[in-house]
């Protein structure tokens, strides 16, 4: 419990750091939000007035504290381009991203784990080679490549699944695979090598010397131990999936947070971009926290410290 509280405390620090970073970066990159917002024809007076209205004339530190204090109350500002509260926009887009992420994670974890374990058991045999080839493809192909490949094969050539996503379950299958393939590959490789590693451990000999069958040795003794590094990996994969979602959502035109972020970048929509980054950071940190807690459930040696 103490662990959880201290982790939550450090989470606040990380969040403030992330906001500071994005704040500074947005003000360093070329492109003035005011001029972008105004389009082609505008007078200097309009610029000044708008700059003042958007609080952009204040010192950066003041803007920062203004933002932080409002963010704590759930007010992430108003989007420059969409003229609506950022919080509202995010909450509206979040279900799509959540569905995509959950399906991607489900795909990555189940397929990754199963193929990793099967590969380890059938080490160097045909099934192992097959699974490892697929995982290698997943790890090496960037998401935009695998997404286009999947779209081409399943939607365009064989017409099995819709090309773009409306948000329905079926239309989410392709995006979820595109998003999860990379992680599935990583997880498959890690769980395979971890399981093979654990099978070399002394306590596996003990279990076999006890008279347990190969199956029982793997299920009862090897699997739980081999999952320890995999769990950490899975949590890290969750973070990389959040960034993958940005690309996937753009390719499949899913109205999620990722697409919101891309739009925000293109329009220099600072409040919207800050909001989406902040929101994603919270998700990633929570994911890592869950992984740590899960880790201590699996490993009694860590449980002590919690």
């Amino acid at each position: 419990m103490k662990q959880v509280i201290s982790r939550l405390a450090s989470m606040v620090i990380v969040l403030i750091g992330v906001i500071a970073l994005i704040f500074i970066m947005l003000r360093i990159v070329p492109g003035d939000p005011v001029t972008i917002l105004l389009g082609e024809h505008y007078s200097q007076e309009t610029i000044d007035r708008l700059t003042q209205a958007m609080n952009l004339d204040k010192p950066m530190i003041e803007q920062f504290f203004y933002y932080i204090t409002h963010a704590m109350r759930g007010d992430l500002g108003v989007s420059y381009t969409m003229k609506r509260p950022v919080t509202e926009l995010i909450l509206q887009a979040f279900p799509y991203t959540l569905r995509l992420a959950l399906m991607g994670v489900a795909f990555a974890w189940t397929i990754g784990l199963i193929s990793g374990i099967i590969s380890a058991i059938t080490q160097n045999k045909a099934t192992d080679r097959l699974f490892m080839t697929f995982s290698l493809a997943g790890v090496s192909l960037p998401i935009f490549m695998s997404a286009l490949l999947l779209q081409y094969l399943f939607a365009f050539r064989w017409k099995l699944l819709p090309l773009t996503s409306s948000g329905s379950l079926v239309s989410m299958i392709l995006p979820a695979i595109a998003l999860g393939w990379n992680s599935a590959g990583t997880i498959a490789r890690i769980s395979r090598s971890s399981l093979l590693d654990v099978m070399q451990a002394d306590y596996i000999d003990t279990a076999r010397a006890k008279g347990l069958s190969k199956r029982a040795v793997i299920l009862r003794h090897a699997l739980k131990n081999s999952m320890l590094p995999v769990i950490t990996m899975m949590a890290l994969q969750f973070s990389s999936m959040m960034s993958g979602a940005v690309i996937t959502e753009s390719i499949f035109s899913i109205p999620g947070i990722g697409r919101l972020a891309t739009q925000a970048i293109q329009n220099r929509d600072m409040p919207l971009l800050q909001g989406t980054v902040l929101f994603t950071t919270v998700l990633v940190i929570l994911g890592n926290l869950v992984a740590d807690l899960l880790y201590s459930v699996l490993d009694p040696r860590i449980r002590k410290a919690v």
Binding site: D202, T206, A209, K210, L298, D299, P300
Partner: peptide, 16 residues
Amino acid sequence: VSMIFQEPMTSLNPVL
């Protein structure tokens, strides 16, 4: 027939 091993530290499964 049963066997005991050299390393009691690593011969027992740490998570059981």
